[in-house]
Design a binder for these strands. Structure first.
Length: 552
RNA sequence: UGCCCGAUGGUGUAAUUGGCAACACGCUUGAUUUUGAUUCAAGAAAGUCCAGGUUCGAGCCCUGGUCGGGCAACCA
């Protein structure tokens, strides 16, 4: 039995409720369809769906579509794709807009109870009347209207007798309340706008506060989980439930996910898209689910990540290296190994017959239970990484150098015999001898070498494009910067290279994930054509040597 | 100048609810290795924001501070 993992504070609440006799739980994931889902949403999705999976119950997918001017069907579709990709199934696909008739009835109820009124004030007047956090607001001059007049006016609002902004319906609570959200919050506003689902059926739309909690209640959601910025809304949330005498859903808040070197704000991400700082919502540098998916991240890795970051109420800034650890850990298990030379240096095997070649088997993944192999052509002329040769190597360098021997992965041990340079002194070719008796799998040479290099046969290699990504922003904490966040965009966040791949990669299909030996994890991008393969770098391998070099 | 949250190694999350502060990432060192990857082993790193109080005993409870975050969209 593995050690029982400790519960997060929401699980504790759920277990307490269950122990107190509650029969099961219902949660919901309530995105507004005005942008693509990002890693922060993944945390919420894993929490909400994870809870109902763990405690027996279900989770609804409910679109909070109460603002027709920013919401679109494109977003609805992408959100559904992303939730499914992450690996979760919702019980019901619902929309707050489904509840417009019911919500309208709720508004009528409040008016009849004398708890809501139509306000003719302008937006500015209402804002001014709100007061400030440290000073009370003032009652609207329209606050005292009779129930009949309010009913009539609200009816006229619904019928389209007024223009946008001319009137609103407000709750009648307390303009001096210490909680700003309780100072007669707006319930309904007029928007003569086309809604992605209800079309032109309505010209009044409920505000978030009047739609969200009641939607939870209608669905009998037991635990309505949201982020910390909604804490002050909870008092209002409960007020509606009490006054309307409806199912008592309960709201609980947790701290949203923040990550180093990136942003988790839909508004700012939209700006990056609109201003073409990235190629789209699914640009592999984006922290969106469609972005990390295209980058090659697996749903397993994302879920593992969400599990590891935990759930609590204090502000946090998760190091992006934790995310990278999670992908590496999963990809190490599932990605097939391939060899690709990024910056080629020609090797000529002077004792290997010209015109000859042979196929050498190489493991697809050394960790697989029965190890499987692919064939790699080997010949007299090869490419290795330019970094893997040094004419004057430092002490702990155990790659190729004059007089030194290295192993070519899955092939032979070679020894550097001669270095050829051009007029500028740049090494253009390295001549080596190979040890025929050192062939992988049947090595009788008895020689042990420290270094093993990846390589590709010059005559058999296929050119491919590789897109190498780095952090989107140069600063760690985007939340604590002054000025425009765009000035911190990393100009080096995308580097495109033409590189040399082993021929078996020609068979790859979009979405396939590989480990390019010693280089990193890559996946085939959808931009690929049979004539031109494009690979996205998912994440590099851990690199102790790079650290050593950096230390100097 | 109000109300509401929060504070535990560098980061994140725990601490059987009052009993020797643990786990993970990151970092360091060593072993293994036909990937300087993986794997394995070891280690450094907080005495729990501060000050009082309750208690045999406080990271947990109480009081008062300090610091950080949120709250005044006809956004969600």
């Amino acid at each position: 039995m593995p050690e029982e993992k400790s519960l997060n504070f929401i699980e504790e609440i759920v277990e307490r409720d269950l122990a107190a006799g509650q029969k099961g739980i219902i949660t919901r994931f309530p995105p507004e369809p005005n942008g693509y889902l990002h890693l922060g949403h993944a945390k919420s999705i894993c929490l909400n769906f994870g809870l109902s999976l763990k405690y027996g119950g279900y989770t609804n997918l409910r679109f909070d579509d109460t603002n027709p001017v920013t919401e679109e069907t494109e977003y609805v579709d992408s959100i559904k794709d992303d939730v499914r990709w992450l690996g979760f199934d919702w019980k019901n696909e619902l929309y707050a807009s489904d509840y417009f008739p019911q919500l309208y009835e709720f508004a009528l109820t409040l008016i009849r109870k004398g708890l809501a009124y139509v306000d003719d004030s302008t937006s500015d007047e209402i804002a001014a009347g709100k007061g400030t956090p440290t000073s009370p607001g003032k009652d609207s001059p329209f606050r005292g209207r009779s129930v009949e007049e309010n009913l009539s006016l609200f009816q006229q609002m619904k019928e389209g007798r007024f223009k946008d902004g001319e009137r609103v319906l407000r709750a009648k609570i307390d303009m001096a309340h210490t909680n700003m959200h309780m100072r007669d919050p707006i319930l309904y506003r007029i928007k003569h706008a086309h809604h992605h689902r209800t079309g032109d059926a309505w010209c009044i739309y409920p505000m978030y506060d009047f739609a969200h909690g009641q939607s939870d209640s209608i669905e009998k959601v037991t635990h309505s989980i949201c982020t910390l910025e909604f804490v002050p809304h909870r008092e209002l949330y409960d007020w509606f439930i009490e006054k309307l005498e409806i199912f008592p859903s309960r709201q609980y808040e947790f701290a949203r996910l923040n990550m180093t070197h990136t942003l988790m704000s839909k508004r700012k991400l939209l700006q990056l898209v609109n201003e073409n700082h990235v190629s789209g919502w699914d640009d592999p540098r984006m922290p969106t689910l469609s972005g990390v998916r295209r980058r090659g991240y697996t749903p397993e890795a994302i879920r593992d990540f969400c599990d590891r970051v935990g759930v609590a109420k204090r502000d946090n800034l998760i190091d992006i290296s934790l995310l990278e650890f999670c992908v590496r850990e999963h990809l190490n298990k599932v990605a097939q190994r391939r060899m690709v030379v990024f910056d080629p240096l020609k090797i000529v095997l002077i004792n290997y017959p010209e015109g000859q070649s042979e196929n050498l088997p190489s493991e697809n993944n050394p960790g697989d239970e029965p190890v499987t192999y692919r064939e790699m052509p080997f010949s007299r002329e090869l490419y290795i990484e330019r970094d893997d040769f040094m004419e004057h190597p430092p002490k702990k360098y155990f790659r190729l150098a004059p007089g030194q021997m290295v192993r070519l992965k899955s092939a032979y041990i070679i020894k550097c015999e001669e270095v050829i340079k051009d007029a500028a002194g740049t090494v253009t070719e390295v001549r080596c001898t190979y040890l025929p008796e050192s062939k992988s799998g049947s090595d009788t040479s008895g020689i042990q070498v420290k270094g093993t290099l990846h390589w590709v046969s010059a005559a058999h290699t296929i050119p491919v494009e590789v897109r190498i990504y780095d952090r989107l922003f140069t600063v760690e904490d985007l939340g604590s910067i002054e000025g425009d966040f765009r000035q911190y965009l990393n100009p080096q966040s995308l580097v495109v290279k033409k590189v040399f791949a082993e021929p078996s990669l020609a068979k790859a299909t979009a979405g396939d994930r590989f480990q390019f030996l010693r280089m990193g994890y890559y996946c085939l991008d959808e931009d690929s054509t049979p004539a031109k393969l494009v690979f996205n770098q998912t994440v590099t391998l851990r690199d102790m040597w790079a650290k050593e070099v950096k230390k100097g």
